[in-house]
Amino acid sequence: MIREISNKEIIKVVRDLCIDANYNLGDDVLRAFDRAIEAEESATGREVLNELIENARIAREEKAPICQDCGLAVVFIEVGQDVHITGGDLKEAVNEGVRQGYKDGYLRKSACHPFTRKNTGDNTPAIIHIQIVPGDRMKIVFAPKGGGAENMSRVNMLTPAVGIEGVKDFVANRVKESGSNPCPPTVIGIGVGGTFERSAILAKKAILREIGNRNPDPELAKIEEEILTRINRLGIGPMGYGGNITSLDVFLEIEPCHIASLPVAVNIQCHAARHKEAVI
């Protein structure tokens, strides 16, 4: 049975997600801040975490953006194969939703031409990832991605011989070299395997996981915990002022890769780990 979804509904849903994600920090992040305050050794670090909790409260109550960097609009869409979209183009509907959301929500427009740096004026085009899945529903995940933490992210094609330890070293060194720049305490998404671009998408998807949830594979869950412990021993701390909470969580996703390759992507997410989703 084919189920119809109108482009107007998609526009409205995306618009609302843009505003919701930028005003209302997820409960999983707020709970992670509370745990971090308990664990943080540095008084300055605890002060920063308190400011972040207070900031999230003000944003929620006053309907204001959590951060002035309202990000590029990253949108993951799962379209059921029994869905028929009516009234127009899906990508244009998403972009129109972003356009309306960033205007109506008084969100900062940060999209520009890569060379002239001229702002596109409405935060489009969105970065849209579409996947066809079974069923007759459409799931839209909206994740605004700030520039500071994105700039610290990297993809590397490692030599297979370095194995898991090489991946751990690469991630820990990336976080170390990023220092205070990506607004710690961060969330670290790691994508291992696939191809060059696939690893980056895996890493991006990884940061959408709820903080505290481990990879269902016990081996991978163990690696996530090991990397998190190692990162939090670096001493960078909240905002880089020193401390033992540099990251709130580490998420690892893997896929098979070429026999010659070991692609690894590290996507760093600032503490404003914003993402909201809706199912139509």
Partner: peptide, 10 residues
């Protein structure tokens, strides 16, 4: 340094 991400507070 100002606290990054504390845009509503600042």
């Amino acid at each position: 340094g100002a606290t990054g991400g504390a845009g509503a507070l600042i």
